[in-house]
Structure formats: C-alpha cells, structure tokens
C-alpha cells in the first residue's frame, strides 16, 4: 500500500514539475531543438536543475541498505554501448523533434490538452507494441 501511494506521489510530483517548467508545451521543447532558429534555452535550465537535484540523490543512495518504501534497490547495471541504444535514441530524438513531446509530458498533457495527448499516446502505444513483437529480446 505504501508502495502504491509512493508511486502515485512520485508520478504526481513529476507531472507537476513538467507542467511548471513549460515542458508540457511542445512549442517550448521544439524551441530548444530549434538551435539554428529562434532558440529557446528554457530546457537547459529544466535539465540543469533536475540533474543537480538527482545527482545528490545518487550520492545518498549507496549509503542506504534499502529504499525507504521498498525491499531492495533495482537499478540499471548495463554499461555497454550497443547499436540498439544508439539507434533507439536516434529514433526517439526524431519523434521528439517532430512533435515536441516525449513520454512524460505526453501523459501529463492528458490533464491539460487531452485530445492531442491521446493521439500522441495512442501512437506511442502502437510503437511500443511494434517493438514488443519485433525487436524485443
């Protein structure tokens, strides 16, 4: 139960941050990617601030035997740079540029611009299903 409430809280805090920062506005995101046009540096501040805060958490984490509301830490361990990582990231960037929306803001926008969010998320679900039945190992 505590787990579930914590997960809802974490998602809500994340969604509030996305809305406050302007990242639920695709124009702002595309403005950041429009480096050779009317560049909007706002995303640099969002990323910088989020990175600083999260870097502190990564410093605290090794000193903890277990997470506050769970049995154990389950964190990514892979270190290899493979072609899937780079191809996937490259494709993601193309989609990110086309719409100015990534998964977090896509879900957050359900509460703000629901029709647009549903179309994007419908496509995203389709893309994930496509992956599941083709390249998923």
């Amino acid at each position: 139960m505590r787990n579930l409430v914590s997960a809802l809280f974490a998602g809500a805090l994340f969604g509030a941050g996305l809305a406050l920062s302007g990242m639920t506005d695709p124009m702002r995101v595309r403005g950041f990617l429009d480096l050779f046009g009317e560049w909007d540096p706002t995303l640099v501040f969002v990323m910088g601030s989020a990175l600083l805060v999260t870097a502190i958490a990564w410093r605290i984490q090794p000193a903890m035997a277990r997470p506050l509301f769970g049995e154990k830490f389950s964190l990514p361990t892979r270190k290899d740079l493979d072609s899937r990582l780079i191809t996937g990231a490259a494709l993601f960037g193309v989609g990110w540029g086309i719409a100015g929306v990534c998964p977090g803001p896509g879900f957050a926008a359900l509460a703000l611009v629901p029709v647009a969010a549903v179309i994007f998320l419908g496509g995203m679900l389709g893309g994930m299903i496509l992956f599941r039945f083709t390249f998923d190992k």
Binding site: A90, V101, F120, G127
Partner: peptide, 8 residues
C-alpha cells in the same frame, strides 16, 4: 511522432 517515440 508517437509511433517513433514509442518504438525508439
């Protein structure tokens, strides 16, 4: 964009 983001 959604399809490409989902797959990528």
């Amino acid at each position: 964009a959604g399809v490409v983001v989902g797959f990528g």
